[in-house]
């Protein structure tokens, strides 16, 4: 099955050791971004090269891999990454969150609760939560060192002054174990509460920006907020039109040019599972044929 021209999981052993060392240091200092010598992968920067390198460093031949993009297993880039590991590592793949031992994700945390024994690998475009407030790495590194996060609070507070609420809806910054402010990758803030106290290991890989960071299991992760403006994990105020779920994150789909739209679960495995169990939504066919 595996492509013999390349090493197991594509990367050479020396590169994997370098990534593995970075991952362990990331776990030892939760939320801190560890620099690593990201390699040029056979897919473009910005398309998951960081996540792919972290996954490659973690995979064993016994793993069952799931890859999702926007919560879905069949989006083209998820398909492409899954194929890459089938080809280079020969691992089993699955669309089931429960069956997977390693899940690589872009922009979502699965709806089904994760468990011990699982690793969730996030693809991260811009790992530095302070980057859009201060573009210079030398400066943001110092801010993390000195725990100078005032700039972030000022930004969030300006949002409240202008809009009446914090106008950040995804990549919503969090504080890990009361120390490092961390970018959770561009997941919707709806997913933020799942970051903390999670039984699974969460690893974050940013290839182009050459950073790896981690949240160990059962770690305190708090979304930044203010006493008078507490964090709210919001989603579209609808139920899924296919499975009827009222607690899952929804994608909006435009179905005609007369304003018709429907809302469906972004987590395709979750939605399919509910439909198979007999749950129905507003636009479901009467019976599954």
């Amino acid at each position: 099955m595996t492509d013999q021209a390349y090493n197991f999981a594509y990367l050479d052993e020396q590169t994997k050791r370098m990534i593995r060392r970075a991952i362990l240091k990331g776990l030892a200092v939760p939320g801190y971004q560890v620099p690593f010598a990201s390699r040029e992968m056979p897919m473009p920067y910005g398309w998951g090269t960081g996540g792919v390198q972290v996954t490659a460093a973690c995979l064993t031949p016994e793993d069952v891999l799931k890859v999702i993009d926007q919560g879905a297993d069949d989006t083209t880039n998820a398909v492409s990454i899954r194929k890459f590991f089938q080809r280079t590592a020969g691992v089993r793949v699955t669309e089931s969150t429960g069956e997977a031992s390693v899940i690589q994700t872009r922009h979502r945390i699965p709806e089904a609760p994760l468990r011990e024994g699982q690793i969730l690998v996030y693809q991260v475009p811009i790992p530095e939560p302070l980057r859009f407030l201060e573009p210079r790495e030398a400066e943001t590194r110092k801010m993390h060192e000195l725990e100078e996060y005032g700039l972030m609070h000022v930004k969030l507070y300006e949002d409240i002054a202008r809009h009446g609420e914090i106008a950040t809806s995804y990549a919503y910054p969090v504080k890990v174990e009361g120390r490092y402010v961390m970018d959770p990758s561009p997941i919707p803030k709806f997913d933020n509460p799942k970051l903390g106290d999670c039984p699974a290991i969460q690893l974050f890989g940013a290839g182009r920006e050459q950073r790896i960071y981690a949240v160990p299991p059962y770690t305190q992760v708090v979304s930044l907020d203010f006493d008078d403006h507490p964090f709210v994990a919001s989603k579209a105020p609808h139920d899924c039109d296919l499975c009827g779920a009222d607690e899952s994150y929804l994608d909006e789909v435009i179905i005609d040019d007369a304003g018709g739209r429907m809302f469906v679960c972004s987590d395709t495995d979750f939605c399919a599972g509910r439909q198979a169990a007999g749950h129905r939504g507003r636009l479901s066919p009467a019976e599954v044929v």
Binding site: F8, A9, L24, L27, A28, C58, T60, E116, P216
Partner: peptide
């Protein structure tokens, strides 16, 4: 078999450091 053995050993260490 370095790639496979190192991968399994790393997973054990990863779990150990994580937990």
């Amino acid at each position: 078999h370095p790639p496979e053995q190192a991968a399994r050993a790393f997973r054990a260490v990863l779990e150990a450091v994580s937990r």
